[in-house]
Amino acid sequence: MHYGQIISCIALASGAAMGLGALISPRWASGVVRLVEDPDPARPGGYSEFRATYGGLFLMAHLSALLIALNLPAIYAGFAALPLALGWIGAGIGRLISLFADRDRNRAQGLIPVWIPLEIIIGLAIGANLVQIYDIIRTFTK
Protein backbone atom coordinates (compact mmCIF):
# COMPACT_ATOMS: atom_id res chain seq x y z
CA MET A 1 0.00 0.00 0.00
CA HIS A 2 1.37 3.43 -0.99
CA TYR A 3 2.06 5.95 1.80
CA GLY A 4 -0.44 8.39 0.30
CA GLN A 5 -3.14 5.75 0.47
CA ILE A 6 -2.26 4.96 4.09
CA ILE A 7 -2.43 8.63 5.11
CA SER A 8 -5.72 9.06 3.25
CA CYS A 9 -7.25 5.95 4.82
CA ILE A 10 -6.25 7.06 8.33
CA ALA A 11 -7.79 10.50 7.77
CA LEU A 12 -10.95 9.00 6.26
CA ALA A 13 -11.28 6.54 9.16
CA SER A 14 -10.87 9.46 11.59
CA GLY A 15 -13.65 11.36 9.82
CA ALA A 16 -15.88 8.29 9.94
CA ALA A 17 -15.09 7.87 13.66
CA MET A 18 -16.07 11.51 14.29
CA GLY A 19 -19.31 10.86 12.45
CA LEU A 20 -20.01 7.74 14.48
CA GLY A 21 -19.27 9.67 17.67
CA ALA A 22 -21.74 12.40 16.69
CA LEU A 23 -24.34 9.82 15.69
CA ILE A 24 -24.09 8.13 19.09
CA SER A 25 -23.59 11.27 21.19
CA PRO A 26 -25.05 14.45 19.72
CA ARG A 27 -24.15 16.26 22.96
CA TRP A 28 -20.48 15.52 22.23
CA ALA A 29 -20.87 16.84 18.65
CA SER A 30 -22.59 19.95 20.00
CA GLY A 31 -19.61 20.59 22.27
CA VAL A 32 -17.06 20.05 19.51
CA VAL A 33 -18.67 22.50 17.09
CA ARG A 34 -19.86 24.81 19.90
CA LEU A 35 -23.45 24.94 18.71
CA VAL A 36 -26.38 24.47 21.04
CA GLU A 37 -29.94 23.33 20.60
CA ASP A 38 -32.64 26.01 20.41
CA PRO A 39 -33.20 27.38 23.95
CA ASP A 40 -36.86 28.17 23.16
CA PRO A 41 -38.91 25.66 25.22
CA ALA A 42 -41.59 25.72 22.52
CA ARG A 43 -39.04 24.37 20.02
CA PRO A 44 -37.26 21.51 21.78
CA GLY A 45 -34.70 19.38 20.05
CA GLY A 46 -31.97 20.12 17.63
CA TYR A 47 -30.16 16.89 18.32
CA SER A 48 -31.48 15.39 15.12
CA GLU A 49 -29.40 17.94 13.21
CA PHE A 50 -26.25 16.91 15.07
CA ARG A 51 -27.01 13.23 14.49
CA ALA A 52 -27.80 13.83 10.80
CA THR A 53 -25.19 16.36 9.70
CA TYR A 54 -22.28 15.72 12.03
CA GLY A 55 -23.17 12.08 12.56
CA GLY A 56 -24.72 10.23 9.66
CA LEU A 57 -23.38 12.46 6.90
CA PHE A 58 -19.82 12.44 8.24
CA LEU A 59 -19.91 8.71 8.94
CA MET A 60 -21.26 7.62 5.57
CA ALA A 61 -19.31 10.09 3.40
CA HIS A 62 -15.97 9.23 5.00
CA LEU A 63 -16.74 5.52 5.26
CA SER A 64 -17.73 5.26 1.60
CA ALA A 65 -14.56 7.08 0.49
CA LEU A 66 -12.53 4.80 2.79
CA LEU A 67 -14.07 1.67 1.26
CA ILE A 68 -13.34 3.01 -2.22
CA ALA A 69 -9.76 3.82 -1.20
CA LEU A 70 -9.26 0.28 0.09
CA ASN A 71 -10.89 -1.56 -2.80
CA LEU A 72 -10.27 0.35 -6.02
CA PRO A 73 -7.10 1.26 -7.90
CA ALA A 74 -5.36 4.44 -6.76
CA ILE A 75 -6.60 6.57 -9.64
CA TYR A 76 -10.25 5.99 -8.73
CA ALA A 77 -9.68 6.10 -4.98
CA GLY A 78 -7.85 9.43 -5.17
CA PHE A 79 -10.57 11.09 -7.16
CA ALA A 80 -13.32 9.55 -5.01
CA ALA A 81 -11.84 11.20 -1.90
CA LEU A 82 -11.19 14.54 -3.63
CA PRO A 83 -14.57 16.14 -2.80
CA LEU A 84 -14.12 15.32 0.89
CA ALA A 85 -10.55 16.60 0.85
CA LEU A 86 -11.62 19.86 -0.76
CA GLY A 87 -14.57 20.09 1.63
CA TRP A 88 -12.27 19.97 4.65
CA ILE A 89 -9.92 22.54 3.06
CA GLY A 90 -12.94 24.72 2.27
CA ALA A 91 -14.04 24.50 5.91
CA GLY A 92 -10.62 25.74 6.97
CA ILE A 93 -10.78 28.61 4.47
CA GLY A 94 -14.29 29.52 5.64
CA ARG A 95 -13.14 29.54 9.24
CA LEU A 96 -10.14 31.71 8.30
CA ILE A 97 -12.44 34.23 6.62
CA SER A 98 -14.70 34.16 9.69
CA LEU A 99 -11.74 34.82 11.96
CA PHE A 100 -11.26 38.21 10.31
CA ALA A 101 -14.66 39.11 8.83
CA ASP A 102 -16.77 38.06 11.83
CA ARG A 103 -14.46 39.30 14.55
CA ASP A 104 -17.27 41.21 16.30
CA ARG A 105 -19.79 38.38 15.94
CA ASN A 106 -17.61 35.61 17.33
CA ARG A 107 -17.81 35.46 21.12
CA ALA A 108 -14.06 34.87 21.25
CA GLN A 109 -11.43 33.38 19.00
CA GLY A 110 -11.49 30.23 21.11
CA LEU A 111 -10.40 27.24 19.04
CA ILE A 112 -10.81 28.94 15.65
CA PRO A 113 -7.02 29.36 15.19
CA VAL A 114 -6.59 25.69 16.09
CA TRP A 115 -9.34 24.41 13.76
CA ILE A 116 -8.08 26.31 10.69
CA PRO A 117 -4.80 24.40 10.26
CA LEU A 118 -6.39 21.19 11.54
CA GLU A 119 -9.12 21.23 8.88
CA ILE A 120 -6.61 22.05 6.15
CA ILE A 121 -4.32 19.24 7.34
CA ILE A 122 -7.22 16.77 7.41
CA GLY A 123 -8.14 17.82 3.87
CA LEU A 124 -4.57 17.39 2.65
CA ALA A 125 -4.34 14.03 4.42
CA ILE A 126 -7.54 12.78 2.78
CA GLY A 127 -6.20 13.98 -0.57
CA ALA A 128 -2.82 12.31 0.00
CA ASN A 129 -3.98 9.42 -2.18
CA LEU A 130 -3.56 11.79 -5.14
CA VAL A 131 0.20 11.68 -4.53
CA GLN A 132 0.09 8.05 -5.61
CA ILE A 133 -1.62 9.05 -8.85
CA TYR A 134 1.11 11.61 -9.46
CA ASP A 135 3.75 8.91 -8.87
CA ILE A 136 1.99 6.58 -11.32
CA ILE A 137 1.77 9.28 -14.01
CA ARG A 138 5.40 10.28 -13.46
CA THR A 139 6.49 6.64 -13.83
CA PHE A 140 4.68 6.24 -17.14
CA THR A 141 5.93 9.52 -18.61
CA LYS A 142 9.61 8.77 -18.09
Score class of each variant (00 low, 15 high):
P73I: 05
E49V: 13
S64N: 04
F140C: 13
L130S: 10
A128R: 03
A91C: 13
A69I: 00
I112S: 09
I75V: 08
I7R: 00
L130R: 05
R27W: 14
R103H: 07
A91P: 03
S14C: 12
R51E: 14
Y47R: 12
L124S: 00
W115C: 03
I133L: 06
G21W: 01
S98A: 14
G94A: 00
F58Q: 00
R51Q: 14
I68K: 00
T53V: 13
I116D: 03
I89Q: 05
A42K: 14
L35C: 12
Y76K: 08
E37G: 15
V36Q: 15
E37W: 15
N71C: 08
S30V: 07
L59T: 00
L35H: 12
L82N: 02
R103L: 08
L66Q: 07
G127E: 00
I120T: 05
R27H: 13
A42W: 11
G45N: 09
A13S: 05
I120L: 03
F100R: 07
F140R: 12
Q109L: 14
Y76W: 14
I116N: 01
L84P: 01
P26G: 07
T141K: 13
G87E: 07
I133C: 05
G127L: 02
R95F: 04
V33M: 11
E119Q: 11
A74E: 06
L118V: 11
S14M: 12
P83W: 04
M18Y: 10
I75Q: 03
G87S: 10
L96N: 09
I133T: 02
L35V: 14
A74P: 02
A101I: 01
I120D: 06
L86H: 01
I7Y: 05
S14E: 10
E49K: 12
R95L: 09
I75K: 06
R138K: 13
W28N: 07
D102K: 07
G123F: 01
E49T: 13
C9M: 09
S14G: 11
F50D: 02
Y76D: 11
A77E: 02
M60Y: 01
G45Q: 08
I116S: 06
S14T: 12
H2Q: 13
T53M: 10
F50M: 02
L86D: 04
M1I: 09
I133Q: 03
L67R: 03
A85T: 05
